[in-house]
Amino acid sequence: MTTQQLRPIRGVHNAPLEEFYTSGHRTCQGCESALVLRLMVKAAGPRTIVLGSTGCMYVANTTYYSTPWVVPWMHTQLGSSGSAATGTAAGLKALMQKGKMRDEPINVISFCGDGGGVDMGLSAISASLTHPEYNHLVLLYDNESYANTDIQASGSSPWGANTTFSPPGRERRIMNTRWKKNTAIMLAHGHPKSRYFATGCPSYSLDLMNKVRKALTIGGPTFIHTFDPCPKGWDYDPKYSHELGMMAVEAGLWVQWEMEDGKLTYNGPSRMIATGRRKRRPVVEYLKRQGRFAHFTEEDIAYFQAQVDEMWEKWGTPGISSVKLDLTGDRA
């Protein structure tokens, strides 16, 4: 099956003006996940079907009679973004190949949150990436919590963050102790026949739109993971959403990269950091701006910084993958 040939957008002035995600939703002011969806479908264009799993981007987005979606949209279950992509793409392929539907390339994008993708739906996303015969993109928008259900810790919530399941109390600080962020590279490692994996952040909108275009054009199943500041869940003034996204990238906490046919490249500020042309900003600036880290002690901040330092200084692929090659012990 062929794909739509979506050309890269050269410069923000050349971005299409047409919107396919418009008014009608009721996401929070400053919601970066909503912006991700707007950019995603702006890049994809009108001949697109979007599937969305349960979460803020379903519940706050699509109320009966006031959908923001100009393109066809369908809900899928919390752990089903991968299956929704596969099922939709398979249905279209079968109908077109059997002459039951006009043959044309239709973009299939299935999105999920971190709860739906990093946790519950991981196995279905993995399965969807094993089908080179279907063209689709799974986009994981990561607001670092189960936001819709009141901000509970997910596998993708940062270490120590205050969530409604990990409150620092008088007697005990229930801290989120998990450190799991690199879902895209984890999936990239295991699905060598999928041609495109990337991370993105709506603070870098052009980069994100072009990644969506590449993912849809290249063919087969693809995956993008975005980092989306969430004013409600992270507890900050909505006007700082963009700035926080940039701070996370500049602190090296979130790494912008893409991998095309196995070739990995850093993008934007992450590239500058990786090539030593720019120093990472201290994470403390980023942490201090958000209420979810207000309980952090000096030691917590130092620990957090040490983790980020380790990502960049000790990992085999700095900031992205801890896998290191070691042939010294070989007894050939």
Partner: peptide, 9 residues
């Protein structure tokens, strides 16, 4: 889930 979505198209 896959057949559900295939049925929808």
């Amino acid at each position: 889930e896959i057949v559900k979505h295939a049925s929808a198209v």
